[in-house]
């Protein structure tokens, strides 16, 4: 008998400790970048190191980051949702309609969140239910959702939200901690646990690396995809509540182009745009970096569009750098 010489060797669980792996990770690099930008900013402007100014700066990214967490999971699973900014527009419009009809704050908030969920369910049904490519579907629903806002509002706007409604975008929970910053922190923790600590999170990576293999391993691929779109819609609804509250008005052009900033945030955070890898911590760090860059440049009186050049370059550079260095 040709039995292989099998004396059972002991296989270690890991060769690298999680700590050692962390130190060599993309997230570690982001921390260094964040420290550098923070230091540069504090030298560049005397107004930077002020807790209230810093607190203000967080409004730059909190709404986007809430969506980015859900988007990160979607991208890790190999899908994408380009309709998020349009969901914000439609959710905001729904809130405006409810407000105009005379309903109070709880109903307004519910209307925003429910609209987000419905839009997410539509995307999910098209992508997961009918097996359509998400990039095309969400380009379509991106036009559709915002288009409905335009049909309802035209060139008009909803204003006159109740005073109490302002809390979600302008209120403070404790000292310099705004409600948005608080919500950002809470959602970050929830999404961190969901992605990195649960069975559901594991299946997201499985699907992103090999959707066919996932199916052959008993993973309910379509169901997971549907839930991810639902979550992205939900977070867009939540972000719509915050943004509408912060601006105090709804126009159909609200949050135009925000999907690109969110995707930039996700990719900068180390999520592979082709799916399969990434972490919530990376997205949190990317959110802080983008927020600090925007804020720092703003303090120097540089216009926003120049800032967007910088972000565009940053996006390409962070992805190109490891590829160019690795090649050598």
């Amino acid at each position: 008998m040709s039995a292989p010489q099998s004396q059972n060797r002991h296989l270690p669980d890991r060769l690298q400790t999680p700590m050692a792996r962390m130190l060599r990770s993309w997230e570690a690099l982001l921390v260094v970048v964040f420290i550098l930008i923070f230091t540069a900013n504090s030298f560049a402007s005397p107004y930077f190191l002020n807790v209230w100014n810093l607190s203000d700066a967080t409004f730059n990214f909190t709404e986007k980051a809430m969506i980015a967490f859900a988007m990160a999971m979607l991208i890790i699973a190999g899908e994408i949702d380009l309709s998020v900014a349009s969901i914000i527009a439609l959710a905001s419009t729904a809130m405006g309609l409810v407000m105009s009809a005379g309903y109070g704050v709880p109903v307004i908030v519910l209307a925003g969140i429910a609209t987000g969920l419905i839009c997410g369910a539509i995307n999910g049904a098209l992508v997961a239910g009918m097996n359509l490519p998400s990039i095309v579907v969400t380009i379509g629903t991106m036009s559709l959702f915002r288009g409905v806002s335009f049909i309802i509002l035209g060139d008009q706007a909803f204003t006159g939200y109740p005073k109490e409604f302002a809390f979600f975008g302008q209120g403070y929970v404790f000292w310099v901690i705004s409600f948005e910053l608080f919500l950002f922190a809470v959602t970050a923790v929830i999404f961190y646990i969901l992605l990195h600590r649960t069975n559901f999170g594991r299946t997201i990576y499985v699907i992103g690396n090999n959707p066919v293999g996932a199916l052959f391993s008993g993973v309910r691929v379509a169901r997971v995809r549907f839930i991810l779109f639902l979550l992205t819609g939900l977070m867009s609804g939540v972000a719509a509540v915050c943004l509408t509250s912060r601006l105090g008005s709804t126009r159909p052009s609200i949050a135009t182009g925000m999907e690109l900033e969110i995707i930039t945030m996700v990719v900068l955070g180390g999520v592979n745009i082709l799916g399969g890898s990434g972490s919530i911590l990376g997205v949190v760090l990317a959110a802080f970096i983008m927020g600090m860059v925007t804020f720092g440049i703003g303090l120097l009186n540089v216009p926003g569009i120049v800032m967007s050049i910088f972000l565009g370059l940053l996006l390409i550079a962070v992805i190109a750098a490891p590829k160019l260095i690795w090649r050598k």
Binding site: D13, N199, Y205, N209, V212
Partner: peptide, 29 residues
């Protein structure tokens, strides 16, 4: 390569995939 192994994920995550409900507690890994 396509249907069996989930390439890109470690051995233990491949091996535990269909048994996750057994190895986890309340949905947590």
């Amino acid at each position: 390569g396509r249907q069996g192994a989930i390439k890109g994920l470690p051995i233990f995550q491949n091996a535990s995939l269909p048994s996750l409900t057994k190895t986890s507690r309340g949905g947590f890994l």
